[in-house]
Design a protein around this nucleic acid. Structure first.
Lengths: 208, 208
DNA sequence: ACCCTATCCATAGCAGCGCCATGTATCGTT
DNA sequence: AACGATACATGGCGCTGCTATGGATAGGGT
């Protein structure tokens, strides 16, 4: 499939051009137009693929009786996804509002909202802590951190140095006890080993 | 100057191409090569211009005897800068690690570190709260939020809905009292009216 | 006053890009 | 078996960033 091939080229840091994409597949450039309605359509499909992979990864995070731990685990899975294919992650959020099926992205976000709501019902978060708001802030914080790392502004080590603390900050702000929060986050991150991306990403505007 | 012109075209959402850039200036395409060493060099200069404008904006934020308020005010100025020219902000962080003068970006960051350090010395933050770490987390959180808004993932209203709360979360995590923190943030945001960008940004990969 | 040198820029043309009009082949339907 | 629809290969268009070449201008040394 051309979308997978595009994702591979993205991961290999090859420029994803129309001709390079179809070369070797036996297909011609027209295939991109009949199936994706041109390059913008292909990029849209690639973004969709990125969100599909993310959803798959978040689906695998198991639900425990500690919802704050689950939130931390979801965050760790999210960062793992971003590091697994940094170029794909950047493409995902280059125009994340333009997807074929926005519901898939919403479904991933729903994992966060559900966990936040469970934390509220378990009296870890305040009763008036809006789960959607907590999820949004948690997500935005993680997105910002990982983006700064992927663009080379912050070093790779910044992820492990700051991600758990930032998660804790949001959870405590939502009402969780600081000590319990720290313990849950530690537990949610247990076994997660973030892997440094293969090469520093130094795209320029105009690159893919 | 070609850099200002590029920034204007960016703000007008015109595609910034080499020929369109020099058209009307009397200059020819070669000027970009003698002065900027090609388009990548021009983009680097545009990013630098973006960080210069940011630094100027942060310089104007006054220092008071409430360092947490100052942190909030710096954050508000940062978001104001991002909204003043969303396209420029996106270009800035497209390859923010590649600048002619990285010290300028560091100087802006230094404002945050200095304010965090003053908060620590004023016993608002814990004594072991590393000012650089606090500044980094605060920055990452704000960057993530504003990026999600600029890419159209979150609505404009998300800024005012979440930015102060996210700031508070970081400050409290650094040791500040929740009530005092909320009051300082409110004070730092006083008078700041974020303006919705002119049009929703719907770039695609390959666009500028 | 002269020329030599260095810098800058205008011209024109290159290869590559996304895109699409056209003609051909292949498939499923009746 | 004949038809209609869909998918694809070809070739070329206009655009992009880029650069080799040559002309113009200014500054300094003799």
């Amino acid at each position: 499939m051309l979308v997978e091939r595009a994702a591979e080229m993205l991961a290999r840091r090859e420029p994803v051009t129309l001709r390079a994409l179809v070369a070797g597949t036996g297909a011609s450039t027209m295939a991109v137009y009949t199936h994706f309605d041109g390059m913008p359509g292909l990029w849209r499909a690639v973004r969709q693929e990125g969100f599909t992979r993310l959803a798959r990864r978040l689906d695998e995070v198991e639900t425990t009786d500690d919802p704050v731990r689950d939130l931390a685990a979801l965050g760790a899975a999210y960062l793992t996804h971003a590091l697994a294919d940094p170029a794909l992650y950047r493409v995902m959020f280059d125009a994340a509002a333009d997807l074929d099926d926005p519901d898939e992205a919403a479904r991933s976000f729903g994992h966060l909202v559900a966990a936040a709501d469970r934390a509220r019902r378990a009296y870890r978060f305040r009763d008036d802590a809006d789960p959607a708001a907590v999820a949004t802030r948690y997500w935005a914080a993680g997105h910002g951190l990982v983006m700064l790392v992927l663009t080379g502004v912050l070093p790779f080590e910044a992820l492990t140095a700051h991600a758990p603390a930032m998660a804790c900050a949001e959870f405590v702000a939502a009402g969780d006890d600081p000590r319990r929060s720290a313990e849950s986050v530690r537990s949610g991150w247990a076994g997660v080993e973030l892997e440094r991306p293969v090469g520093s990403d130094s795209r320029r505007p105009g690159d893919v």
